[in-house]
Design a protein around this nucleic acid. Structure first.
Length: 765
DNA sequence: TAGCCCGGCGTTTTT
DNA sequence: CGCCGGGCTA
């Protein structure tokens, strides 16, 4: 039995599969058969007679979880299906619902996504009288999410625990606190809460922890480099009894640190578990030696990494090439033609090709070009099904029928379709609900007291009636029936039918698609309740995997490419400022640059046969055309000749008086003055030149735009300044560049001012 | 209440 | 260049 399980594995893989009674870390490079190892390991455990219920495997994506589950069931048909394999979030939501009574969360909590969070935050801003121009909602949403990733409470965010940026920290903490209160009132948890509340529950209730520690004797975590602090603590707590923990990941593929993931979790595993074993998987089964070598040349420029080098027995039949083009249209067209020729000569299928880019905005030219040449393509990630307004509306109805305290959903649907309940009525209602500390739904009966007009009250009452009937239906009928009734009787589709635009027809089609998604859910899911459906919808969000079988070219961002593979990969927009992407505030941040480089590494290692590195001499972004320099990644990959084109274009541009250049000045900013441009072009060139001839790591890191930082970023975010009139303050925000550089300064009296740096007469202190 | 216009702003986004 | 949101007006 044992033999058959490791039979088809290489030595390291087999070692990893067989090592089960101690902490194990598997450094699994790209394409080294990591999922294979985990699934075989589970099969091995089961073959030893270990109960499937004592095995827990967590991943980050539903796709990975589903894939893993499928492969385990393939290996061990019956018992395999009883192993708990899921994402962190669905594990936690299952735990929280199951133990809700013991830990004091409502068992029927709603799950709020990022958009819902922002709605709640907007209300918080209003209530606290905070100007949205001074604090950006999504920025605060991010901060609160990061706080939860770090298991920090609102109090923990205040100056008591932070020395820097006093007023700012306190304001964030204040918003965070109110936000939590509103979430609690709405009976809702956000993604961060799911993890954090689980950890808190385990920390607070040792008996509960003890039970789950005993239950899950074998724990496996995939993509460990992507865990945040909360997830790290969660895993550590669960594994504390038996230490039979197996994590696997690749620090070179850590590309989500901006979302709270901490590479150090994987780097310090051996310190956390002193008696652990470490196994490296370095044999790659995906790419050609050339691709691996070039990818390694790039990633080895990073300093903070575990040394490892992929090798392969694959034959060297592909190629790695640089594709230089005139502008982004040229880039798209040239690539389209290459694909066209390969497909029509019978060499490849459309599905053998993938286009990767750094920003979603880059996809458009490809769509145009592909449409023109009649190349079928699939665009991944831009407009997700559940992000469409019409789908969100219908789902909001369902969420509201499930939980009437869900104020976000209430506000979304109360006037969709139009019922004549407008902004002012809603504001009155909201004000009253805050005063009474009840949900907006509960406020409806006080509508007259709240000062609403008779007309509005009538409209509200018919809405109430509709919801009541729907709740009744929910308790007695299937989800499908509820959805169908909501769609038929809310008046939503009728309004679209009356509009009768092309757009509204598409919306109706999408709504039909939602019904079939619900039918699907009822076929496949164990928990067939409305809550079960809503949980699934909240935690899944993409249904695009269905298209995989189709013969189409794939277009996606580099972030979405992780875990996938294609025969032919085009990495596009490889230009300084675009990839690596540069913002004025982080232009020389080494950590972020290294993450960009890992992103490049991820992109490159997706290719099985051929890899094209594409860059454009000129690119139009947001209606402004700029000249570009080739990405340092192209040079690092060994294509040093490309530097000649910088030279040529610099002298060319000099003669043209530098109409513009892409030099990493942010996006929709005005062109810098001629002198600035001149300076920066020379500087860019100079530094690149140095990088090539005297390439120490540090110099490469600061290759581009270093002097821009000197000129324009004298005023850094967080720096203290004094103003002749307003006094001492801290820079909390920046916009514009050069002569248009504007600084938002938070002064000690609590006032914010947006000041033009050129004239504000600020002094750094 | 709702529709229109203007201005600001635009990296990535597993759940 | 386009999108979204806030504010103003019919």
């Amino acid at each position: 039995m044992k033999k058959s399980i490791v039979e088809n594995l290489n030595f390291s893989q087999a070692e990893a599969v067989l090592c089960i009674e101690k902490p194990l870390i598997i450094f699994a490079g790209a394409g080294t058969g990591k999922t294979r190892v985990i699934t075989h390991k589970i099969a091995y455990l089961l073959s030893l007679g270990i109960s499937p219920c004592s095995i827990l495997a967590v991943t980050f994506t539903n796709k990975a979880a589903i894939e893993m589950k499928k492969r385990v069931i393939d290996l061990v048909p019956k018992t395999g299906s009883n192993v708990w394999i899921s994402t962190f979030h669905s594990f936690c939501s299952y735990f929280l619902r199951t133990e809700a009574l013991k830990i004091g969360v409502p068992s029927d909590f709603s799950i709020y996504n990022f958009a819902d969070q922002k709605c709640v935050l907007k209300d918080c801003f209003k209530e606290l009288n905070i100007d949205e121009n001074k604090f950006v909602v999504s920025n605060i949403a991010d901060r609160i999410s990061r706080a939860k990733d770090d298991l920090r409470s609102p109090v923990n965010m205040t100056t008591k625990f932070n020395t820097e940026n006093t007023l700012f920290a306190n304001t964030v903490a204040e918003i965070y606190e109110l936000y939590q209160k509103k979430m609690k009132n709405a009976g809702s948890l956000d993604f961060g809460d799911l993890i954090m509340q689980t950890v808190l529950a385990f920390q607070m209730y040792p008996i509960l922890l003890d039970y789950y520690q005993g239950k899950y004797k074998y724990i496996m975590v995939d993509e460990y480099q992507d865990t945040n602090y909360a997830q790290y603590v969660l895993v550590k707590l669960l594994a504390a009894k038996y230490h039979n923990i197996c994590v696997c990941g690749d620090d070179d593929q850590s590309i989500y640190s901006w979302r709270g993931a901490d590479v150090n979790n994987i780097l310090s595993f051996e310190k956390d578990y002193p008696n652990s074993r470490s196994i490296k998987l370095e044999q790659n089964y995906r790419s050609t030696p050339k691709i691996l070598s070039v990818a390694y040349q790039v990633v080895k420029h990073n300093t903070a990494r575990v040394d490892k080098r992929l090798w392969t027995q694959n034959c060297d039949d592909g190629c790695v090439k640089v594709l230089r083009t005139r502008n982004e249209n040229d880039e798209a067209l040239k690539i389209a033609k290459l694909i066209y020729l390969d497909v029509y000569s019978g060499k490849y299928n459309f599905s053998d090709f993938a286009i990767f880019y750094r920003t979603n905005a880059q996809s458009r030219v490809f769509e145009d070009a592909f449409r023109r040449i009649c190349i079928p393509y699939t665009l991944i990630g831009t407009l997700k099904f559940y992000d469409r307004a019409e789908i969100k509306d219908i789902v909001a109805y369902l969420k509201f029928i499930h939980n009437q305290n869900d104020n976000v959903s209430f506000k979304r649907i109360i006037n969709v379709p139009r019922r004549g309940v407008g902004k002012t009525s809603l504001e009155k209602l909201e004000k009253f609900s805050l005063m009474k500390n009840i949900s907006m739904w509960q406020t409806i009966i006080f509508a007259r007291e709240a000062g609403l007009t008779e007309k509005v009250i009538v409209a509200l009452n018919s809405f109430v009636k509709f919801i009541r009937v729907s709740i009744e239906l929910k308790n007695n009928a299937s989800v499908r029936e509820v959805v169908e009734k909501v769609i038929a009787h809310s008046g939503y589709v009728q309004e679209l039918e009356i509009e009768n635009l092309h757009e509204s027809k598409i919306k109706i089609e999408n709504i039909q698609e939602l019904i079939s998604a619900v039918k699907d859910f009822e076929k496949t899911s164990l928990d067939k309740s409305l809550m079960g459906y809503l949980t699934q919808v909240s935690l899944i969000s993409d249904i695009d995997s269905a298209d995989e079988s189709k013969n189409k070219v794939t277009l996606m961002t580099l972030h979405l490419a992780k875990g996938l593979e294609f025969n032919n990969v085009f990495i596009c927009g490889l230009e300084e400022g675009l990839f690596p992407i540069i913002r004025e505030t982080t232009i020389c941040n080494k950590r972020e640059l290294e993450e960009e480089r890992r992103l490049m590494y991820v992109g490159m290692t997706r290719a099985k046969k051929r890899l094209y590195l594409c860059w454009s001499l000129e690119r139009t972004i947001y209606g402004k055309t700029k000249w570009s320099a080739p990405s340092r990644f192209i040079l690092e990959a060994g294509f040093k000749d490309e530097i000649m084109y910088i030279k040529q274009n610099f002298s060319m541009n000099l003669n043209r008086k530098f109409s513009a250049i892409n030099m990493g000045t942010g996006f929709n900013k005005k062109f810098p003055s001629a002198t600035e441009v001149k300076y920066n072009i020379f500087d860019d060139y100079h530094h690149s030149y140095i990088a090539l001839n005297d390439k120490t790591k540090d110099e490469l890191v600061s290759t581009t735009g270093a002097s821009i930082v000197k000129i324009l970023c004298k005023f850094k975010i967080g720096a203290m300044v004094t103003h002749p009139i307003f006094g001492r303050g801290k820079i909390i925000e920046k916009s514009g560049i050069g002569n248009d550089l504007k600084l938002t300064v938070l002064f000690e009296d609590g006032q914010w001012k947006k000041l033009l740096a050129r004239v504000a007469n600020l002094t750094l202190i």
